[in-house]
Design a binder for these strands. Structure first.
Lengths: 163, 163
DNA sequence: CCGAATTATTTGAAGGTCAAAATAACCGAC
DNA sequence: GTCGGTTATTTTGACCTTCAAATAATTCGG
C-alpha cells in the first residue's frame, strides 16, 4: 500500500506477468499434447479422447464403478457421463446395470470386447506419450513431476478458499 | 531387442510409466486451473472461457485479425471461430468487416465496449492466476517455464514427425 | 483471359460440455 | 410408516468443438 500525491490510499498493482505467462505456457503444452493424442486416437482407432479416458478409468476398476465415481475421477459433470456411457453401452464397450442394493445407482463395467479393445489402444497410447516426451531427460521428468505436484496443491488451495 | 527361449526376436516392452504419469499430472493441473478460471469467469462476468480467450487475442491486435489468424492462435478449428465470432458480434463485443483487398477475408476487432469489458475482466483474471500459483516460488516459476518450454518443443517435434 | 489450384470462410452432422432443474430412491427421525 | 432431507442419475438448453464438405474468392501458369 502506498500513498499518492493527494494522500489517498491506493493499491499498487503488482506485476503477475510471470504467473500469467506460466499459465499460458502450461495451457499451450497441454492443448498441444491433447490435440496430438486426440488425432492419433481418431486415426488409429476411430475413438474420441473422452471415450478413451472413460474406458481407462473402468480398466482400473474390474468390479465396475458408479456414474458418480466416474464423474469425480474424470472431473466432468454428471450429465456428461450419462451421455458418454449411453454411447459406449450402445457400441458394446460397456455393460451397465442397476445396483442390487441401491436402485438409484448404475454400475458400469467394460465388456470383454471393450476391455480387449482398450488394452490394445492403451499399449499404443503409451508409446505415443513416451515419444511426445522423449526429449526430456529422466531428471527433467522427475523435476516436472515435483513442480506440477506443487502447482496442483497450490491451485487446489486457491479453489478451496473460494468455495 | 532380445531373443526369447525359442530364439525368436521379440520387442522388449519398455517402461514408459513415468512419462504417462507425467502426462496425467500435467493434464490434471491444467484441467483443475482451467475449471477454476472457467467458473470464476462465469460467476463474475457471465462469460465463457472461449469468449474470453478470443477477446484476449483481439486485445493484442488493435488493427484486428482475420478468422484464420484467430483460429491458428487459439489452436481451434475454423468452423469453431465462425460460431464464436458470430455470438460475440451479436452481443456487441466485436466488430466484423470484410477486407477491402480480399473479399474472402473477414477482419474482426474489439468494439470500444468490448475492449473496456475485456480490460476489466483481464485485470481480475490476472489476480486469479497469481493466487492460483501463489505457492510457487519465483524460482519454481522460472524452472517450470524452462521445463515446459522443453516439453513443448519435444511435443512439437513428435507431432511434426507424424505429419 | 481461362481454368486449375489454393486459400478463407461457412455449413452440417455428431459429439462433448456445463449448470440447473427434474426425477427417483434412499435414510433417518419421529 | 411416513415425512423431509440427501444422494444418484437423467434431462434440458445453450454453448463449444471437430471434421468434412460446400462456397466463394484469389492467384497463377499458359
Amino acid at each position: 500500500m502506498i500513498l499518492d500525491s493527494e494522500t489517498k490510499a491506493v493499491e499498487l498493482p503488482e506485476d503477475h506477468g510471470n504467473e500469467l505467462r506460466l499459465w499460458l505456457r502450461l495451457l499451450t503444452c497441454t492443448t498441444l499434447i491433447e490435440g496430438e493424442v486426440r488425432s492419433r486416437l481418431r486415426e488409429r482407432f476411430d475413438v474420441t479422447l473422452p471415450r478413451f479416458d472413460l474406458m481407462a478409468q473402468l480398466d482400473k476398476a474390474p468390479d465396475g464403478m458408479t456414474l458418480s465415481d466416474v464423474s469425480k475421477r474424470m472431473m466432468v459433470s454428471n450429465g456428461n457421463v450419462t451421455g458418454l456411457v449411453e454411447r459406449l453401452v450402445e457400441s458394446g464397450h460397456l455393460d451397465r446395470r442397476t445396483s442390487d442394493t441401491d436402485r438409484r445407482v448404475q454400475v458400469i463395467r467394460l465388456t470383454k470386447a471393450g476391455r480387449a479393445e482398450f488394452r490394445k489402444m492403451a499399449a499404443e497410447h503409451e508409446t505415443w506419450i513416451a515419444d511426445i516426451f522423449s526429449d526430456l531427460s529422466p531428471k527433467d521428468v522427475r523435476e516436472l513431476m515435483r513442480l506440477l505436484a506443487k502447482t496442483k496443491a497450490s491451485a487446489q488451495k486457491s479453489a478451496q478458499k473460494r468455495a
